Simulated assay, not measured.
Amino acid sequence: MRQYAKAAGISEDVRERMEQTWADVVGTARRSTADGLVVGTSGNVSARVGDVVLVTPSGVPYDRLGPEDAVGVTLDGRRVIGELAPTSELPMHLAVYRTTDAAAIVHTHAVHATAVSTLVTEVPPIHYMTAALGGPVRVAPYALYGSDELAEGVLRALDGRTGCLLQNHGTLTHGATLDQAYDRTAQLEWMCRVWLTASAVPGHTPSLLPPARLTEAADKLRGYGQTP
């Protein structure tokens, strides 16, 4: 990354930001494995620094990645950092960055969310945290991984949302930071697990939250949280 920064005339502070962001990308990818949201090298993570997207490489176990393995591409997909090939899901990541204000993206193959993606076209609003994702989470129609078709479907599913499911595939969430994007992924997986669990009880149908209640929750969530 130092060689790239020197050749491209990137300032020292931006280079340092890229190095820290790459470390955060790797840390988030490893966390997704440790938390059981991905298996092996499935799923991927990225973060944007200016017009460069730092993204996990294709087919490399996350525990083997170090500072020298950084992969960075421009918004049109041109690799400008590193020698490793970026994730095969790069078209999906870049489409989201070009279309939204996302600064970070987490894509997983989380078990419960993937299971729900095979059952419905929209995640039932089983919990008020649905509001934290912008409303009921849509399911993007199935398309081959890494394809422009998948990227286009994801963009439609994300309209007005910060997360979606990919049919028979997994999840995608974005945020202003990697921590926020990851938290949204974890919340989405948890909501899917809750709905599947409640739906499995014989003779009972889960109660769902109406739009007015979700709006009420969304208003309250805007003021939630604090910086320690």
Rank of each mutant, 00 (worst) to 15 (best):
R2M: 13
K6E: 12
A7L: 15
A7F: 07
A8M: 13
I10K: 08
D13L: 11
V14M: 05
V14K: 12
R17P: 00
D24H: 00
V26E: 09
G36V: 04
S42H: 14
G43R: 15
R48C: 03
R48Y: 06
G50Q: 12
V53A: 09
V53M: 11
V55H: 10
V55D: 11
P57A: 06
P57N: 12
S58A: 15
G59V: 06
Y62H: 08
L65P: 10
D69A: 01
D69H: 08
G72N: 04
G72A: 10
E89Y: 14
M92H: 00
A95K: 14
A95T: 06
V106D: 03
T108P: 04
A110N: 12
H112F: 09
T114G: 00
T114R: 00
A115Y: 04
S117F: 06
S117P: 05
E122T: 03
P124Y: 05
I126Y: 02
Y128W: 08
L133C: 03
P136T: 01
A140S: 02
A140M: 03
P141M: 02
Y142R: 07
L144T: 15
Y145F: 14
G146D: 01
D148E: 11
L150N: 04
E152D: 12
G153I: 11
G153S: 09
R156D: 14
R156F: 03
R156C: 02
D159R: 14
R161F: 11
C164D: 11
L166I: 11
Q167W: 10
T171Y: 11
L172S: 14
L172E: 07
L172Y: 15
G175N: 06
G175C: 11
A176W: 02
A176T: 03
A186S: 03
Q187R: 13
Q187K: 01
L188D: 10
W190E: 10
R193Q: 05
R193L: 04
V194K: 04
V194Q: 02
A198D: 07
P202K: 13
P202D: 12
P206A: 03
L208T: 14
L209H: 10
L209Y: 03
P210E: 10
R213L: 15
T215F: 06
E216I: 04
D219C: 09
L221N: 06
R222W: 02
Y224W: 08
Y224Q: 08
T227Q: 01
